[in-house]
């Protein structure tokens, strides 16, 4: 009987833990609002426009860098004239090595590129976005995991890390 009682107690404890987990673990925890500044380049190819986006609850360095890079690649909503990465560009990964963010892009960007004008404006916006994050001073772009001199059929040089001074 003592064994049975002990098992029942354990079972009740497990039930309590389980339901506690179900009730509280999935519930959003209040997180202080934080924003990242994302840039897009106007169609004049020169003017960078910052806008602020509220971060989700993941605030670790890699997550924030990934969030910012993905938003920069997506660009502003379609009613805003902006120079954009080709539709279908994917951010595979963003790593941070010291003060350099390593951005691995792919998808439509790996196909033969559009013209040089858009190319430099796209990377300008991406570099400004990531270097707006604390501790990031430069951006190394990779294409499908590989460092490349330019995009396929491209013009803009990508084999060295880019900084705001690169433009």
């Amino acid at each position: 009987m003592r064994l049975l009682r002990a098992l029942v107690v354990v079972a009740l404890f497990v039930v309590a833990v389980y339901y506690g987990y179900r009730v509280f673990a999935g519930r959003p925890r209040p997180v202080a609002a934080a924003t990242v500044t994302v840039y897009y380049c106007k169609t004049d190819g020169e003017t960078l426009v910052p806008w602020k986006l509220t971060l989700g609850p993941a605030r670790d360095r890699k997550s924030v860098a990934f969030y910012a890079a993905t938003q920069a690649v997506a660009g502003p909503s379609s009613d805003i004239d902006a120079i954009r990465f080709p539709s279908g560009t994917i951010v595979h990964a963003v790593d941070v090595d010291g003060s350099t963010a390593i951005v691995d892009l792919g998808g439509a960007l790996a196909k033969p590129t559009a013209g040089s004008f858009a190319e430099s404006a796209e990377f300008k916006a991406l570099v400004w976005t990531l270097t707006a994050l604390p501790g990031i001073g430069s951006v190394q772009v990779k294409l499908d995991g590989i460092r490349v001199p330019t995009l396929p059929g491209g013009h803009f040089e990508l084999d060295e890390p880019l900084s705001r001074a690169s433009f």
Partner: peptide
């Protein structure tokens, strides 16, 4: 766009909206 090393999974729509999910939230 999703990288297992971090916590966001972000879908970019055809009209450049983003749908940002966070692992665990």
């Amino acid at each position: 766009s999703y990288d297992p090393a971090q916590r966001y999974a972000i879908v970019t729509t055809a009209d450049y909206r983003t749908i940002a999910f966070t692992i665990g939230d």
